[in-house]
């Protein structure tokens, strides 16, 4: 019945229906609640994680779509606000307001910077389509720049 799922480097045996969205496997089965539910229709990005490094919305992505060899990284799998350059920039600039969208926002930005270490405005706009109802976008843009600089200088 069960299958394997690799999250943040750890292999889990999960025993849930294969059509269960990955989001709910992460949250309710594995207890990784940093990844959020916002819309359930892939429209907001609150549920964004990395699958083999690619920013992926998980609220309507069935568990079956993830291969047993694939690597899922959630916000809990990043190095934290003192070491991960994106999280560090987020903390330094106090980006989060309510904070609910920010796990997904940060995961999108991690993927963006992996692809474009020095992203243009257009690349940021195209790469970060997560919705923030609080409207933190100006701080998000500033934090992306700061994280990009820190990554380049490192």
């Amino acid at each position: 019945m069960g299958r394997k799922l690799t999250v943040n480097g750890a292999v889990h045996d999960v025993d849930v229906a294969g059509d269960t969205p990955l989001l709910w496997v992460l949250r309710d089965t594995l207890g990784l609640t940093g990844t959020k539910y916002g819309c359930g229709i892939m429209a907001c990005g609150a549920c964004t994680v990395l699958v083999d490094g690619a920013a992926t919305r998980t609220c309507a992505l069935p568990l079956d779509a993830i291969g047993e060899q694939q690597q899922v990284t959630t916000i809990e799998g990043l190095a934290g606000t003192s070491r991960d350059p994106v999280q560090k920039a987020w903390a330094e600039l106090s980006v989060a307001q309510c904070g609910y969208c920010q796990s997904g926002m940060i995961m999108s930005v991690v993927a963006l910077l992996a692809e474009h270490p020095d992203p243009s405005d257009a690349q940021i706009a195209a790469g970060v389509t997560n919705l923030c109802r609080c409207g933190t976008y100006q701080q998000v843009r500033r934090a992306i720049r700061r994280a990009a600089e820190a990554t380049r200088d490192a």
């Binding site: 609640t33 940093g34 916000i75 809990e76 990043l78 934290g80 999280q87 903390a91 989060a96 904070g99």
Partner: peptide
């Protein structure tokens, strides 16, 4: 709240 709202906790 900048840390806990940036690390998913």
């Amino acid at each position: 709240d900048r840390h806990t709202k940036s690390d998913g906790s």
